[in-house]
Computed example of a mutant assay.
Amino acid sequence: MTASKEESSKIVVFDALATEPCVYTITFDYKTLGQLQADFIGKKLNGKGNVLEVRGMAGNAVDEEIHQAVIAGLAKFPGIKVVGSVRGNWTQTIAQKEVGGVLPTLPEIDAVATQGGDGWGVYQAFKSAGRPAPTIVMGNRQDELKLWDDLTAQPGGYDTFSVSSAPGIASVAFWVAQQVLAGKHAPNEMIMPLLTIEGKDLKAWLASTPQGGVATPVYSQQYAVDLIDANAAGRPVPPPVPPSGG
């Protein structure tokens, strides 16, 4: 968004990078996304097991940041081995195809690290290969949350979590632009918390996510103010809260 006078332009960019002095960027900490997965998998497997990594698009900075964090995090668990890596391109059908193609060459897989949006496809690949479903980190898409909910209802349940960026960042960018144009001081770079969904909140998030959609909080003007203030002060931003009833 820009002000009416070119000399006083104010531009807000969300979930992307920009360096001009007039630009305010709002993005997610993708390094944390990788770290959260590595910590969860390491503890879930008690520090020992085989992991398959499903990455995003080659040459993308977000993919590389998540990948490096996953590898560094898993390195803390010497008994865990990354035995395979494929490019799912953040797309269910591609993830299913690529994982299905590599599975015959892999040993038993205990967990799958993903980058968001490919958990459903990964599961379908294991199912088609007649192999037991490992622990798959989900990525907040409705089909992934529904799959997780269905698996949880089966005997023995299914223990995982879901993490990704949230589409609602667009509305945060709108409110940040409104605040900046109203004269509020804001840092040029602001980090938003990722949306992490745990099992106890799964049904609430699933109920609030439309079919084919991606889970996202409803961000208010006040949230944008809190985001600006927290980033300016260098303190943590409160995480998104589950939908009503969560």
Rank of each mutant, 00 (worst) to 15 (best):
T91N: 15
G84D: 07
Q142K: 12
A75W: 07
K146R: 13
A75S: 15
S165F: 08
G157Q: 03
W175R: 06
E108F: 02
P187F: 02
Q115P: 03
Q154W: 01
R131S: 03
V137A: 03
T135C: 12
H185Q: 12
A133D: 05
I71R: 14
Y158R: 06
Q68C: 02
A111D: 04
G116W: 06
F77Y: 14
T114V: 01
S85K: 15
M138F: 13
T196Y: 01
N89F: 03
T160C: 03
A182V: 00
K127S: 04
H185P: 15
F126P: 02
L194T: 08
W90I: 02
K146G: 05
K127F: 00
G130V: 01
D63A: 09
T91D: 14
Y123K: 10
R141V: 15
I109E: 07
Y123P: 03
K184Y: 00
G101E: 06
T160H: 05
I169S: 02
L106D: 09
P167G: 06
F161W: 11
V102R: 11
G168L: 09
Q92T: 15
D159L: 13
M190H: 06
D63C: 05
L103T: 04
V172Y: 05
P167N: 02
V163S: 15
F161S: 06
I136C: 10
V86H: 04
H67D: 11
R131Q: 04
S85M: 13
A75K: 14
L74S: 11
E189M: 06
V102M: 08
L181I: 10
A182N: 00
E108R: 13
I109S: 06
R141W: 14
E189A: 15
V122P: 00
D143R: 11
I94K: 14
T196M: 14
V83Q: 00
G119F: 03
Q142W: 15
L145P: 08
T105E: 13
P107R: 04
V112A: 11
Y123R: 10
P193Q: 07
E144Q: 10
I109C: 05
A133S: 10
G88Q: 06
N140I: 10
Q115S: 07
L74Y: 10
V112Q: 06
P78V: 08
G156W: 09
E144S: 09
G139V: 14
T93P: 00
T105G: 12
N89W: 03
V172S: 07
R131W: 07
I71P: 07
I66Q: 02
S165C: 13
L151R: 09
G116A: 09
G130C: 02
G116V: 08
D143K: 15
L181C: 04
D110N: 14
E65V: 10
I80E: 01
A182E: 02
A95F: 00
T135P: 02
Q154Y: 08
G156I: 12
G183F: 08
I66T: 04
I197Q: 08
D201E: 08
L103P: 01
Y158H: 06
G116L: 05
P155M: 13
R87E: 14
P193R: 08
S171D: 12
Q142D: 11
E98V: 09
K203Q: 15
N89I: 02
G100H: 02
G117H: 09
I66V: 13
F126T: 07
K146T: 12
T114E: 04
